[in-house]
Design a protein around this nucleic acid. Structure first.
Lengths: 211, 211
DNA sequence: TAGATTGTTAATCGATTAACAATC
DNA sequence: TAGATTGTTAATCGATTAACAATC
């Protein structure tokens, strides 16, 4: 997450999806235009930061005294994030967390699809997991070699995570979303995004205690 | 997340739980001492950054040529993060994601307990949710006023999230862990940590596409 | 001892904020 | 027009990296 992407800083990139969420809320309320001071105030950011963020991704200009056309900004953010290209993911580890991810509807909005799921134990798909069959993990390598998958999701127990990660890397996966609490060892060209729920909550707890 | 806490920068704070995870892995392998170059290499950070991070929280010194006593660093990190104080949380929204959080064992390590759960529909607790009864959400306010709870977790659909947040704030909750994809409106003294799974995955997808 | 590692001080880099001219 | 908001350039702030003396 260190380097800027297409002139957009790492910090800006993290905020972009939040702008999209907020702008879609406002659009749903029937608003057509919005100014940076209003966005900044609602999201708890400085006005100048919002201006910088928006100008770094927008190809069109806002109108002085009026602001930006909401629909236009939404479209530009989606284009920037590549929402028009479908991203295909597979998930390993269909326990409680993995099942929750399989059933999560929020990925649709970003045009990200979980195509298949794997577990130590095969399971028949329940209605809640969106009818994705859960295959035995021994079929993982074969599946990856025969399908065009961009992202691997690790929702296994920590003991299994590095082994699954190794299979991902062997099969050419370049993006890993990791929910297991360990430091995965990967080659430099693989992007790993760690989602450690427990440590996120621990950080929140610390911030609270320090007030 | 802007301001430094007790001389520890926001960025350092985010890395601290990861150090703990890594050090506990190494301790489990039977190692007694570890040096910053080794930690840095394993975690993909620069050596100097690791030295700075550790010196900002440690009260004791490492030994030249040997490194730091792993157990000691673990203890100091835990003390810094306040793991010795139990943090009490409640959860609202016992759908798939909420249930996964209720069943998640990783919070124990940080001495964080989810004391109660609420949903629009009462449900009998299943074995998997650690025997936490799921109460009707209309009992939420009463529960918060009669129990000492530090953190509220929002795992509801987006439509319900702001209303739940308002109840939290009314009842004096100062820390909110929010999984609903919206920008919550709260007073300045409330710490909100957003965990937007879909947008995290979208950012990973973008980083991949830009390589 | 020699040298790896320590902790710290100074330099660089990146991100945010301040200031301001342009414009509808 | 007046003034709110735009986009941009310069200044500040914070975080990371480089350099180095101290030490076991």
């Amino acid at each position: 997450m260190k380097n800027a992407i297409e002139g957009v800083s790492a910090q800006t990139l993290k905020r972009i999806p939040t702008y999209l969420t907020y702008l879609e809320e406002q659009k749903a309320l029937g608003k057509e235009y919005i100014s940076t001071p209003i966005i900044a105030n609602a999201m708890g950011l400085s006005e100048i930061l919002v201006k910088k963020d928006l100008t770094s991704i927008l190809t069109t200009s806002g109108k002085p005294k009026v602001g930006h056309n909401i629909q236009n900004v939404i479209d530009e953010i989606k284009y920037f994030l590549g929402v028009h290209n479908e991203t295909k993911a597979i998930l390993v580890g269909a326990g409680q967390l993995g099942s929750a991810l399989l059933g999560y509807k929020g990925f649709d909005k970003w045009n990200i699809k979980i195509e298949a799921a794997f577990d130590k134990n095969e399971k028949s798909s329940s209605k809640k997991t969106g009818n994705i069959a859960i295959m035995n993990v021994n079929k993982l390598r074969d599946y990856l070699l025969n399908n065009d998958i961009q992202i691997g999701i690790i929702a296994t127990p920590v003991e299994a995570a590095q082994a699954i990660c190794n299979i991902f890397v062997d099969c050419g996966i370049k993006g890993i979303w990791n929910f297991a609490p360990l430091v995965l060892q990967t080659p430099d060209d693989v992007v790993v995004q760690n989602e450690n729920l427990a440590s996120s909550l621990a950080i929140l707890s610390k911030r609270l205690q320090s007030k």
